[in-house]
Design a protein around this nucleic acid. Sequence first.
DNA 1: CAGTGATCGTTATGCGCATAACGTTATGCC
DNA 2: GGCATAACGTTATGCGCATAACGATCACTG
Lengths: 150, 150
Amino acid sequence: MDFERADALNGAIRTIALKHRARAAAKLAELGLHPGHEAVLLLLSAKGPQTQRQLAAGADCEPPSITLMVRKLEAGGLVSRVPAARDARANVVRLTDEGREAVVRVKELWRDLADETVAGLAGTSVDQLIEALTDLARSLQGQAPGAGAS
Amino acid sequence: MDFERADALNGAIRTIALKHRARAAAKLAELGLHPGHEAVLLLLSAKGPQTQRQLAAGADCEPPSITLMVRKLEAGGLVSRVPAARDARANVVRLTDEGREAVVRVKELWRDLADETVAGLAGTSVDQLIEALTDLARSLQGQAPGAGAS
DNA sequence: CAGTGATCGTTATGCGCATAACGTTATGCC
DNA sequence: GGCATAACGTTATGCGCATAACGATCACTG
């Protein structure tokens, strides 16, 4: 790939990441949340109570990030942490009733964000975009860190 | 858009942003750089010496971020800051000779990163991907923060 | 049963990025 | 010229995310 195409690709990813995150942050702020929190809440909503390790894996981030996010969500009353029954090292995180209400709003917000995100597309259909993005995301997710050109 | 598609879209963007950034960070670390620095260096390389304000606009970030990045790049000897001739408030940032050498390596790195990024694609062509991403990036860049669904 | 290694979670630290508040300089209007 | 307003850059602060180092617990082996 020549430099111009590479730069277009990398630069577009950078721009998309920044702007999308900024928009998400603006919307989440109305609920007192920050970017990343929605991933935890939606995961808990989709897959039920789970340990912080599982949350880290599901949210594509590292355990220390989960520690802080869960602490904030707990302080906000959206989530509760109880020691795991069979493993004294682990905590099981679950949604509170208040958390379940918040999830409803987060889901609406999440749909609004997606609508806004695709609102300005010029020549790309939403289906094309989603397919391309999910393909890329899956590719990056599974890839070993040393793959590709060296 | 239903929630599942919205979540696929938003989640894919989040994953792509995280993984792409992590890969970029790993590569840039070999040059003693951090994510974001490459954007500044490539901008200076492409558009010549410019003020920090212009860098902020070109790199899609805010002036305080530029202050710190430029400071680090200057400490690393890749960049020099001189007071602007016609405006005592502004600094003009330019590449040093060492910075120009670094740009060469950053460009190679940037191409490698792009190659790795598309290496695992399943059903999407590189051209489709780049077109979709640049379309989306341009859309997000120009959009007013309040547009779309409310 | 004792000891070794892996695993869960936390703390410490560092960077990118953001917003808010501030000092300094430039520019517009009168 | 004098003054209000805007613009450039910096500092302060806060969050997400990362890695590295640590204590506590589990699981596996001799």
